[in-house]
């Protein structure tokens, strides 16, 4: 579990706002191992979102390299980048960014658009993912009929559609009340523990950040501090359906055979 999936080398990003130029990231170095749940904290303007955008290939750095599975994505052309955005990373946004005219299932199917997965399979997979985030039976509901927490669950299901290696979450709990906040972070933690998905989450909220195993503090485009949070992997996992003990990496409960990662299963 210690293989490096993501490596940033001397990463810099400068925005030019008219005549003024703003250094969002300056000479940043970072290594993220497979299966790590990392939180990035920092004041506004410290470069959190820029870092995430560069990681997700949504933005190009001014300088430095981003190695994703040993491939330098900064060298890739736009034509190649969409494949990485589609298959390697999954994005979760603060404002959910669901398409309002599509229902929950269609929103989850969206990233599979243009892949070779057959229509029927996409549908089935989307329903499975929605079940996994606790939204069974809500497949046909449009975003406006879902609560904020439910919408973010749909967004998480969407991020998982193409089974990405890394999930990038930009303030995923920023628009949620405290009950939903913890449910979402637990959902992410379960994904991390049970599926081994690498998660990098930007947050303002120290309570949320403390749920992760690794905390990075960003200021003026540099990592100024690193801290270990609660080590989720050490926590005891139980199945929400029957209460029996489960192991990290289980996708179904060994006792009752039901699909895991359901709402509130983490204790």
């Amino acid at each position: 579990m210690s293989e490096t999936v993501l490596k940033l080398e001397n990463l810099s990003k400068t925005y030019s706002l008219g005549k003024r130029s703003v250094q969002a990231l300056s000479n940043l170095n970072l290594e993220v191992n497979e299966g790590e749940f990392t939180a990035i904290m920092g004041p506004s303007g410290s470069g959190k979102t820029t870092l995430l955008n560069v990681l997700g290939c949504l933005d190009k750095p001014t300088d430095g390299r981003v190695l994703l599975d040993d491939v330098d994505v900064t060298k890739l052309a736009e034509k190649e980048l969409y494949k990485i955005r589609r298959g390697k990373v999954g994005f979760i946004f603060q404002t959910f960014n669901l398409l309002p005219y599509l229902n929950a299932r269609e929103n989850v199917e969206l990233p599979m658009e243009g892949t070779k997965i057959p229509k029927k399979e996409r549908r089935q997979r989307a329903s499975e993912l929605l079940g996994m985030v606790g939204l069974s039976g809500r497949e046909e509901h449009r975003p406006q009929r879902l609560s904020a927490g439910e919408q973010q669950r749909v967004a998480i299901a969407r991020a998982l559609a193409n089974d990405p290696a890394i999930i990038l979450a930009d303030e995923p709990t920023g628009n949620l009340d405290s009950k939903n906040k913890f449910e979402i972070v637990r959902l992410l933690a379960n994904l991390n523990i049970n599926r081994g998905t690498t998660i990098i989450m930007v947050t303002h909220d120290s309570q949320i950040a403390s749920q992760t195993e690794r905390l990075l503090f960003l200021s003026d485009g540099k990592i100024i501090k690193e801290k270990r949070g609660l080590h989720l992997a050490k926590k005891k996992l139980i199945c929400q359906h029957c209460g029996s003990k489960i192991q990290p990496g289980d996708t179904t409960c060994p006792s009752c055979n039901k699909v895991l990662y359901q709402k509130g299963e983490q204790s």
Partner: peptide, 16 residues
Amino acid sequence: TKEIGTLKAIGFRNWT
């Protein structure tokens, strides 16, 4: 614009 950004972020091709 935001919708377009989202679509591109989740892996839509330019010509799509």
